[in-house]
Amino acid sequence: MSEIPFKNPGWAGNTGEFDLTEEQVRGDDLVGKRPVDGGHPSGAASYPYMVADRNPDATLFEGPYRERFEKILSRYPDKQAALLPTLGLAQEIRGHVSPESMDRVAELLELSPAYVRGVATFYTMYNKQAVGRHLIQVCTNVSCNLCGADEVLEAFLRYNDVEPGETTEDGNFTVIEAECLAACGFPTCVQINSRYYENVTPTDVPGIIEALRSGKAGER
C-alpha cells in the first residue's frame, strides 16, 4: 500500500463520514490484483494500464502480453474492435504509442497504419510522445476549478519546475492539465498514471511527489 503521508489514501477513503482504510478501498484483497496476462477474457480489455515501469524498446505483445492480446481479440466480432485496448496495451508496455507501435498494431489487426494513427490521435490517453514515469493529470474543469484546481495545477508545475506538458529533467514527472475525471465530488482530482488522487490541495503536492519519487506511492 501507499505510504503517501497525506490525508487522502485514494478514493476519498477518509473524507466525509466514513472511516475506511486504503486497504479496504483499493487493496488487492477487495479490488483484485492486476493480471499481466489479462486474467479472465471478459476483463482482459480493461487492464491496459499506465505504469511507471516501462520499456520504450520492448518488443510488443510477447509472453503474457501476447496472451492478453489474444484474449482481447476473442471478445469482439472483428479485429478492428480490438484497436483501442491494443493501443492501450502497447502503451502499458512502452509508455507511449510511437509511430512504430502504431505500425505494429496495424499489422496485427490488419488495418492501415494511417487509420491507426487517425484513431490513436483522436483519443487523449494515448501518449504520442514519451512522458515522465509519472504522468500527472490535474483536472481543472468546473467542479474542481470552483474548489481551487488551478492552484493545485500551479503547485504541481512549480514544485517540479516545469511547464504544462513538459517532463522533469530526471524523467520522473510530466504535468498536464486534464479534463473532467468524473470525481467532481472530491476536488481536486489528480490522476497520476493509473491512480486517482482525490481532494488534493496545493499543500499535498510535495508529499505526493516525494512519495512517487521514492517509489512509495503504491502503484499497481
Binding site: 479490488v31 483484485g32 471478459s42 480493461s46 468524473a182 493509473s194
Partner: peptide, 14 residues
C-alpha cells in the same frame, strides 16, 4: 481513465 474502477468490475465479472 477508470483503471482502478474497471479493475473492480473485471474482478467482479470474473
Amino acid at each position: 481513465e477508470f483503471f482502478e474502477t474497471t479493475q473492480v468490475l473485471a474482478r467482479a465479472l470474473e
